[in-house]
Simulated scan of single mutants.
Amino acid sequence: MVGATIDGLERIHRETVAGRVYRDLRNLIMAGQVSPGEGLTIRTLATTLGTSMMPVRDAIARLAAERALEVLPNRTVRVPLMSRSRFEELRTIRLMVEGHAVEAGVRRMTPDGLDRLREIHDAFKAEHDLSDPDAGALIRLNKDFHFHVYAAAGMPSLLQIIEGLWLQIGPVLNFDLRSRSRRMTERAALGYHEELVRAALRGDAAAARAALVGDITSAGDFILECGALLTEPFPNMDG
């Protein structure tokens, strides 16, 4: 009886570690903390996360099934490359799905939620306006800003769909927020975020959606123009 209890606790522990590793890697990819084509090693990830290689292998298998990572024939793990056609497809879907989420989120956002939205925006603005902003911090805050609004919609299934889209698109955001681009110099992302905050404070769901559309479209146009995407799909991307 005691052995059965101990075995049960051990299984829960392993599942908890595996779940944490999966969530940590998933959030890393969604937040654009890795770049398309970047290689990852199981040993390095295990060391960084302070765990064994088994839960890392399990997490990589799950993320590969979600097309967030790919395992090449030589068993190298890397962040998938992105083609122009696939990027444009994902952007079109994002505009529809995230547009709906932001409208619903603004309609249902509480006063505390509005305060938190302003806090995230203020942190993004403070980092953005530094002479040498931390690109990693900008990318994380950008994700936090968007998902705070989406989560306010109170639609877990919708949020899960958006997370799946960001798993695929997140690394490509590096080309925007990690670049000393005209879009950064002109404060485009910051401007659209400010418009969205003002719309949320007014409870104007349509204006919030317009700001989001402007943000996604502007970032997408820059990424398409920067020449970093493949003109043809990468052979391993679709299995």
Results as ranks from 00 to 15, higher is better:
Glu103Asn: 08
Ile161Asp: 04
Thr48His: 08
Met96Leu: 09
Thr92Glu: 06
Met109Asp: 03
Tyr150Ile: 10
Ala219Val: 04
Val97Ile: 11
Asn27Gly: 07
Asp238Tyr: 15
Ser179Thr: 09
Met155Ile: 01
Arg180Tyr: 07
Ile223Arg: 05
Gln33Arg: 15
Asp132Cys: 01
Met30Arg: 14
Gly154Asp: 09
Leu114Val: 00
Gly8Ala: 09
Arg140Pro: 06
Pro80Thr: 02
Val77Phe: 02
Glu225Ala: 15
Leu95Phe: 02
Thr231Phe: 03
Glu10Leu: 12
Arg202Thr: 07
Leu201His: 04
Thr217His: 01
Thr41Tyr: 07
Glu195Leu: 13
Ala205Gln: 00
Gly136Lys: 10
Ser179Asp: 03
Ile6Gln: 00
Gly3Trp: 00
Leu167Asn: 10
Leu49Ala: 10
Gly191Leu: 05
Ala210Asp: 11
Val97Asn: 07
Glu38Asn: 11
Glu15Ile: 03
Glu89Gly: 07
Gly227Ile: 10
Ala104Phe: 00
Gly105Asp: 04
Asp176Ser: 15
Thr41Asp: 08
Pro55Asp: 09
Val102Gly: 02
Asn174Ile: 06
Leu229Asp: 10
Pro36Trp: 08
Leu159Met: 13
Ser131Arg: 15
Phe175Trp: 07
Leu114Met: 04
Asp215Thr: 11
Ile12Thr: 04
Ala104His: 04
Leu25Lys: 02
Asp238Leu: 13
Val149Pro: 02
Ala210Lys: 13
Trp166His: 14
Gly154Cys: 09
Arg26Pro: 04
Tyr192Gln: 06
Pro73Phe: 04
Trp166Val: 05
Phe124Ile: 01
Glu66Asp: 15
Gly3Thr: 07
Arg183Leu: 15
Glu103Met: 14
Glu103Val: 07
Pro111His: 02
Val172Ile: 12
Arg14Pro: 01
Phe124Leu: 03
Gly3Glu: 02
Met96Ala: 10
Pro55Asn: 11
Leu72Ala: 10
Met30Glu: 15
Leu159Cys: 05
Asp112Tyr: 03
Ile6Phe: 01
Glu15Ser: 08
